[in-house]
């Protein structure tokens, strides 16, 4: 009983791959995520090399020691590298082109990935100074989406020497 005897032969099939995980953030990242609700960005400092990690993972990947010292870093920083997204894909939320960037927050020693908005995609560049645009407090949750995006501060660009170790 087919209603399709006269239509074209089958040329393709749907073959979706779906992987359902349960992600456990761990102690350090859980504290980082909860501080986002308060508009704070929490990092951890390595007791040996002194590097400040955000988001914190509870240990220094280079030295292999626990990072118990917590420090707050700024919600502004410098674009070290970026990607202009021009390709459509399924479940895309943003309108292309948009910019995803690695941002070295002031006081941190590792970049944080986030969106750059309120500027044309072709104006984003390395060294650009940007600041977080937070969601209203009542809309925040323990997620990086509590920061809606970063936008240019209008400050002069950071000197390349100030972030060359992080590119």
């Amino acid at each position: 009983m087919s209603d399709t005897d006269t239509v074209e032969p089958v040329r393709s099939i749907r073959a979706p791959a779906r992987l359902e995980y349960r992600f456990t953030a761990g102690a350090a990242q859980s504290r980082f995520l909860r501080h986002l609700v308060e508009g704070k960005i929490l990092a951890q400092r390595c007791p040996q090399c002194g590097k400040v990690y955000v988001s914190p993972r509870g240990a220094c990947a280079a030295d292999g020691v626990a990072t118990r010292e917590e420090v707050e870093v700024a919600d502004r920083g410098t674009v070290t590298t970026f990607c202009v997204v021009n390709v459509k894909f399924a479940q895309q939320v943003l309108t292309i082109p948009y910019v995803s960037a690695t941002i070295l927050l002031d006081g941190a020693d590792i970049g944080l990935m986030h969106l750059i908005q309120e500027v044309e995609a072709d104006q984003v560049h390395m060294g650009m100074r940007v600041e977080a645009v937070w969601s209203p407090p009542e809309e925040r949750g323990p997620t990086l989406e509590s920061i809606r995006y970063f936008r240019p501060t209008g400050e002069p660009d950071a000197a390349y020497e100030s972030y060359r170790e992080y590119v």
Partner: peptide, 10 residues
């Protein structure tokens, strides 16, 4: 510790 579903679908 926070836990969340993480679903990857292609």
């Amino acid at each position: 510790v926070l836990v969340a579903p993480n679903i990857l679908e292609y």
